[in-house]
């Protein structure tokens, strides 16, 4: 179950790290869900086209990047409302994926991976787990130890501080949004390639979970690592419980959202005073 939890943690963690970058740059990224969705679909398409899982992952991240490029153009170049554009990103993903799927495979639904799933494992755990943890550590170094990371944090903290030093907040915001596309696309690829199949609504709220994990992790990469793990434990617990209980599957589809909602509300209630001071 621990192994399972660790593997379930990977997509949430990667997506949340991507969301952290935009959050630190002052953009609450509600488009994560859509970015994960296109990443998952593109990963299957890529793997099927090239016959390589690795290329599938590359396709997934690039698809995330492409969609986030659109998102960032709307937000930064056109000054669209961030939330409305994020919503648009999710809807665009939900509209485009079945459309492309219909064009390529003649189906709007399930697309199977034609390549055998052969995850590289280290000590019984998918290689993705250590990679994701390293990513979290790398992001920590980036945000707190590099000039670019410091400026990115200032973008979210007080963009005028950058302007006063003749730096462009938009540049860092754009960078963060594109990175979040790469990350969330990668997260989607991780989900789809692990399952070996693309299913409609495969993202299953992971984008929103990731968003809440960013707050639970105190907007800090290592905190997010812990938060993502806790959510993954819940998820594998819920999956295990499904085998024992009579709760119908349809109802369980809402469970991740409900848990995330509860986490968000409890976090807000507990963190109230801390945030007022900020």
């Amino acid at each position: 179950m621990i192994v399972n939890s660790l593997e379930l943690m990977v997509p949430i963690l990667i997506a949340a790290l991507g969301g952290l970058l935009t959050e630190r740059a002052g953009v609450l990224n509600i488009g994560l869900e859509g970015l994960i969705l296109v990443g998952a679909f593109a990963a299957i398409v890529g793997a099927n086209l090239t016959g390589s899982l690795l290329m599938g992952a590359v396709f997934g991240t690039l698809a995330g990047l492409a969609l986030s490029a659109l998102y960032s153009v709307a937000c930064i170049e056109l000054r669209s409302n961030i939330f409305v554009a994020g919503l648009a990103t999710n809807l665009l993903a939900a509209g485009i994926v079945p459309t492309v799927s219909a064009l390529l495979y003649g189906t709007r639904g399930v697309v199977r991976l034609a390549v055998p799933v052969s995850a590289q494992r280290i000590a019984g755990v998918s290689v993705m787990v250590p990679l994701a943890v390293i990513l979290a550590a790398a992001l920590h170094v980036f945000l707190f130890e590099t000039p670019y990371g410091i400026r990115l944090r200032a973008t979210g903290g007080n963009p005028q501080a950058l302007v006063a030093r003749a730096l462009s907040p938009d540049r860092y915001r754009r960078f963060a949004m594109l990175c979040s596309g790469l990350f969330a696309g990668g997260a989607g690829a991780a989900v789809a390639l692990r399952l070996g199949v693309y299913l409609p609504n495969i993202s299953a709220g992971r984008g929103w979970i990731a968003l809440v994990v960013i707050f639970l992790g105190m907007r800090h990469p290592l905190g997010i690592l812990a938060g993502a793990f806790v959510f993954a434990v819940f998820e594998s617990f819920a999956a295990a419980a499904q085998g024992f209980t009579e709760v119908p599957g349809t109802l369980l589809l809402g469970l991740p959202y409900l848990i995330t909602l509860a986490a968000m509300v409890v976090y807000s209630a507990l963190g109230r005073h801390a945030r007022i001071e900020r």
Binding site: P147, R151, A161, A166
Partner: peptide
């Protein structure tokens, strides 16, 4: 002065010229 309250003093002082 235009400083960012979430950054440390050191980060503020050298922002843009690190």
């Amino acid at each position: 002065p235009r400083l960012d309250r979430s950054l440390t003093v050191l980060e503020n002082l050298f922002l843009g010229d690190e």
